[in-house]
């Protein structure tokens, strides 16, 4: 069975990201999964094996890790040439897409982004136009290079014992033009990552202040979820930009999305309307968010949310 390359998203702090396990789960239906890790893989190998990786390729060293994106694309391109995989899967994250873009140019090969599924024949299913349409597409030149959106499928284990292979990557000078001088983690506590969380609690302009966002955080923490924000909340300085959900922010597709004080503008819906269950709290009964909410509470979030938090505490 041909190999399927899965370009791993992981960090030493957070471990193997959930989207990687989803990619391995999809890869198993296409061939024999081989994970590609950049940097030290020791902490990840067991997890990758648990989800079916038969092989783990490791590209490490300062040539690969100290420069932005380009050396990683070179490493994957070399691997495509030597391993002749049936497909390459990457995460639909900024870096995943960027590697995919360079890879496509290097190999003069088509690419498909933001897929939620890939069929055995390489046909990818993509959700387009802010979740309002579903497209099936195929790469017509070269092998399928597909980026997978987080929370597209439920990762299921299928234990394998991967062989680990260190790659020697020949990095060209033109790959070393952009140096990474610093990586800064901004505090985010122990909450799950926004795009991977199965529960997201978001606040909008109706939350009214940065201080009052503690209501949103409290509910998120009680449910074990991530915190999101509308653009109006971000623009008003209530919450940092990397938590913005929507057209110009993150796309999330959790099991449960709770919108607090968010009107439901089309650009906000763009980032959350494929969520499985949607709950809204808004004091305006006519707010468009109620059109897509499975459960809506017309009321003041300053009353409803603390009461809900108390009730959850009671039930615990």
């Amino acid at each position: 069975m041909a190999e399927v390359l899965v370009v791993v998203e992981a960090s030493q702090a957070a471990g193997v990201k959930k989207v990687t396990l989803e990619m391995l789960t999809i890869a198993r239906t296409l061939g024999s999964p081989s994970a590609v890790v950049f940097g030290d893989a020791a902490a990840f190998t067991d997890k990758l094996g648990e989800y079916g990786a038969e092989k783990v390729y490791v590209a490490a060293g300062s040539d690969v890790e100290d420069y932005l994106v380009a050396p990683k694309a070179t490493a994957v391109a070399e691997l495509v040439k030597s391993a002749q995989p049936a497909a390459v899967l990457l995460a639909s994250t900024q870096e995943g897409k960027e590697i995919a873009g360079r890879l496509a140019v290097k190999l003069d090969n088509g690419l498909l982004t933001d897929a939620v599924d890939v069929a055995a024949d390489g046909t990818a299913t993509q959700v387009v136009f802010a979740g309002s349409g579903i497209v099936k597409s195929k790469v017509t030149r070269g092998l399928p290079i597909v980026t997978i959106r987080p929370n597209s499928t439920t990762p299921t284990p299928q234990p394998a014992t991967p062989t680990v292979e260190q790659l020697t990557v020949t990095v060209a000078d033109s790959d070393k033009l952009t140096r990474v001088v610093e990586r800064v983690a901004e505090q985010k506590g122990s909450r799950p990552e926004l795009t991977e969380a199965s529960i997201v609690v978001s606040g909008g302009r109706g939350v009214a202040s940065a201080d009052n966002f503690k209501l949103v955080e409290e509910l998120a923490d009680l449910l074990g979820g991530a915190v999101g924000a509308s653009r109006a909340a971000v623009d008003s300085g209530f919450y940092p930009h990397q938590f913005q959900v929507g057209q110009t922010g993150k796309t999330v597709s959790p099991q449960l999305y709770i919108a607090l004080g968010i009107s439901g503008a089309i650009q906000h819906r763009a980032g959350m309307q494929t969520s499985k269950t949607i709950i809204a709290v808004n004091k305006d009964a006519e707010a468009p968010i109620f059109e897509l909410a499975d459960y809506g509470v017309v009321g003041d979030l300053n009353k409803v949310v603390p009461q809900a938090a108390d009730e959850i505490r009671k039930r615990k």
């Binding site: 496509a104 003069d108 090969n109 088509g110 690419l111 498909l112 046909t123 959700v127 979740g131 309002s132 349409g133 579903i134 497209v135 099936k136 597409s137 195929k138 790469v139 017509t140 030149r141 070269g142 309307q273 949607i278 709290v281 009964a285 109620f290 059109e291 897509l292 909410a293 499975d294 459960y295 809506g296 509470v297 017309v298 009321g299 003041d300 009353k303 409803v304 949310v305 603390p306 009461q307 809900a308 938090a309 108390d310 009730e311």
Partner: peptide, 26 residues
């Protein structure tokens, strides 16, 4: 280098239950 083989609009979501808070909304 790639082709769309099928396009279908996604069925729009429909509204579910909506209640008005009368003191026990939470």
């Amino acid at each position: 280098t790639s082709a769309v083989v099928d396009f279908s609009p996604r069925p729009p979501r429909s509204a579910g239950t909506k209640i008005t808070d009368e003191g026990d909304g939470g």
